[in-house]
C-alpha cells in the first residue's frame, strides 16, 4: 500500500511540536507496511490535492495565521473538494480554526476561514493554557496540551471530537473539544497529539487507505506510546 501525505505550511504552522504528528504518521505507517511519502506545501507553491490521501495542518502564531490566510483562500475550492472526496486529515489549533468560517484574532482582527468545517472561532480574552484531558466516544480518553485564546463554537450540525474532562477544549465553557467531520479531525491538542493518542493515528491511516486496519499492538512504537500515555494519564 502507498500513501501520500501533504503537510501545509510546515515552516509557519508548527507550534508545540505539531510536526511530531507527521513524524508519528510516517513511523506508524511503517508498522502496517504502508509506504508513505510526505510533501511540504508552503506559500506560493503549486498544489494539487488530488494526489494525496492524508493532510496535516498545524497551529501557528497569530502573525503566522495572518501570513497564510490569503494563500490558503486561493486553494479553497480544491481543499473543499478533497474533504468531500474523503481525504483523511488532522488539523491542530490554528489549522483547525482556519477551516471554519471565521477566526477572531487577539489583536481584534477577523480572518475569513475556508468554511469547510461547521465551526467559527471568536476572539477570547481568557488564554487557555494547560493539560487537556477529554473523553471521546470513538477514541476513549485523549490527552494533550492546549494554548489558545480563541473560542471555537460548533454549529448544530457539528459533532465534537470529545467531551472535556480536564482543561477547556473548544471554548471557555469547557464542555467539548475538537471536531470530527467526515475523515477530518480538528483539535486544540498540541503536545504533539498523535504520539500519545496513537489510536487516532490508526484511524487516520485506516481512513486514508479506505479500510479498517487491524491494530498493530506488537510494534515497539505502539508499546512505547501506550507506556508514555499511561504515565501522562496517571499524572493528570
Amino acid at each position: 500500500m502507498k500513501l501520500k501525505l501533504i503537510y501545509l505550511y510546515p515552516e509557519i504552522m508548527n507550534t508545540y511540536g505539531d510536526r511530531g504528528n507527521v513524524m508519528l504518521l510516517e513511523a506508524r505507517a511503517k508498522d502496517y507496511g504502508i509506504e508513505i511519502s510526505t510533501d511540504y506545501y508552503t506559500l506560493g507553491d503549486q498544489l494539487d490535492l488530488t494526489q494525496y490521501q492524508l493532510l496535516f495542518f498545524g497551529g501557528g502564531q497569530d502573525k503566522g495565521q495572518n501570513l497564510i490566510a490569503r494563500d490558503l483562500m486561493y486553494h479553497k475550492a480544491q481543499l473543499s473538494d478533497a474533504v468531500k472526496r474523503g481525504i483523511a486529515g488532522l488539523l491542530v489549533c490554528g489549522g483547525y480554526q482556519m477551516l471554519g468560517s471565521e477566526v477572531g484574532l487577539a489583536d481584534g482582527g477577523v480572518l475569513e476561514g475556508l468554511s469547510i468545517l461547521p465551526v467559527k472561532t471568536l476572539v477570547g480574552k481568557n488564554r487557555k493554557i494547560g493539560n487537556l484531558l477529554v473523553q471521546s466516544e470513538q477514541f476513549g480518553s485523549l490527552v494533550g496540551f492546549e494554548n489558545h485564546s480563541g473560542n471555537t463554537i460548533l454549529d448544530q450540525s457539528g459533532k465534537a471530537l470529545a467531551q472535556t474532562i480536564k482543561g477547556y477544549g473548544n471554548n471557555d465553557s469547557a464542555i467539548d473539544e475538537g471536531i470530527i467531520y467526515r475523515n477530518l479531525i480538528g483539535t486544540y491538542m498540541h503536545g504533539p497529539f498523535l504520539p500519545k493518542n496513537i489510536q487516532v493515528a490508526d484511524w487516520l491511516l485506516s481512513r486514508a487507505v479506505g479500510k479498517d486496519l487491524l491494530t498493530n499492538t506488537q510494534s515497539s512504537l505502539y508499546k512505547v506510546s501506550i507506556s508514555a500515555r499511561e504515565s501522562v494519564l496517571g499524572a493528570l
Binding site: 511530531g20 513524524m23 508519528l24 513511523a27 504520539p195 500519545k196 515497539s220 512504537l221 512505547v224 506510546s225 507506556s227 508514555a228 504515565s231 501522562v232
Partner: peptide, 14 residues
C-alpha cells in the same frame, strides 16, 4: 523519560 523515549522511538532510535 517516557515522553523522551517515545520521541526517540518516533525518530526510529532504540
Amino acid at each position: 523519560a517516557k515522553d523522551l523515549r517515545l520521541r526517540l522511538t518516533v525518530a526510529g532510535l532504540e
